[in-house]
């Protein structure tokens, strides 16, 4: 970079301004990263709780299904699965956490009313259907927290890369430029001062010569 920059005073001023901006940017990004890390760890607790809930709800649901398939026959349970439309509407909004777009999912209130007749359906099958409703809710909760976690994690990685790029590449590059420009300008100053000294010495020598020359002429004419 130093080779491409013109070593002028205005370039030096511009580089100094860039250095200030880059340092400020790096500080800001570091603060953003720290804030995101704080948010990340707060979310990790929620994500772990959601996973744990999913695990326990699933265990109960599969136990119910185990009993339902045995007592009410697998065919009867599978027949009931045809009754569902397969649609599950959720209310999802996008919110911004330190500029990171994350989903906020509001899980709708679960209706206990099944869309099939409970007449001639075993209690275990009804229990299994209810339990799997809970599993669906828990899955959505896990998906919401883990998507947030993943987005924030990616942003932390991206921010860290940017901070590293600024601290390891951009700022040292600008500092090199400044050093190079300063070096060249100092060199130029030294050369200028040396040139001025030479001129001064020459001028003084010429003056001395000029002062000596009339004295020599008078002596010659007297001899004549």
């Amino acid at each position: 970079m130093a080779g491409q920059i013109s070593p002028t005073r205005s370039a030096l001023l511009a580089s100094k301004a860039s250095l200030k901006t880059a340092s400020g940017g790096a500080d800001l990004l570091k603060r953003k990263r720290d804030a995101l890390i704080g948010e990340f760890f707060a979310l990790v607790r929620d994500a772990l709780a959601a996973r744990e809930q999913l695990g326990s709800v699933s265990k109960g649901a599969y136990t119910s299904l185990f009993g339902a398939k045995a007592w009410d026959s697998p065919e009867a349970v599978e027949s009931l699965s045809l009754a569902g439309t397969g649609d599950y509407a959720i209310d999802m909004q996008i919110e911004s956490i330190y500029g990171v777009k994350v989903p906020r999912i509001n899980i709708p209130e679960r209706t206990q009313q099944a869309n099939f007749s409970p007449i001639n359906v075993g209690a275990r099958t009804i229990q299994a259907a209810t339990d799997f409703g809970g599993v669906l809710e828990a899955i959505v909760k896990v998906a919401a927290t883990e998507t947030k976690l993943r987005r924030i994690g990616e942003e932390i990685k991206k921010t860290s890369r940017r901070v590293n790029a600024l601290e390891q590449v951009v700022i040292p590059g600008i500092q090199d430029d400044i050093r190079f420009i300063r070096g060249v300008l100092d060199q130029r100053e030294r050369e200028e001062s040396f040139r001025l000294k030479k001129i001064k010495a020459k001028l003084e020598r010429e003056k001395e010569d000029a002062d000596k020359a009339p004295q020599g002429g008078q002596h010659g004419s007297a001899a004549d």
């Binding site: 026959s73 065919e75 009867a76 599978e78 027949s79 009931l80 045809l82 009754a83 569902g84 439309t85 397969g86 099939f116 007749s117 001639n120």
Partner: peptide, 29 residues
């Protein structure tokens, strides 16, 4: 006839839910 009842319900559920005939036949007792 309780199995007939179950089969008729399976057919009804499948048709209302827009499932294919293959899925409905698979669920028949």
């Amino acid at each position: 006839m309780k199995w007939d009842l179950a089969n008729l319900k399976t057919i009804a559920r499948g048709l209302v839910g827009g499932r294919g005939s293959e899925a409905i036949v698979e669920g028949l007792i």
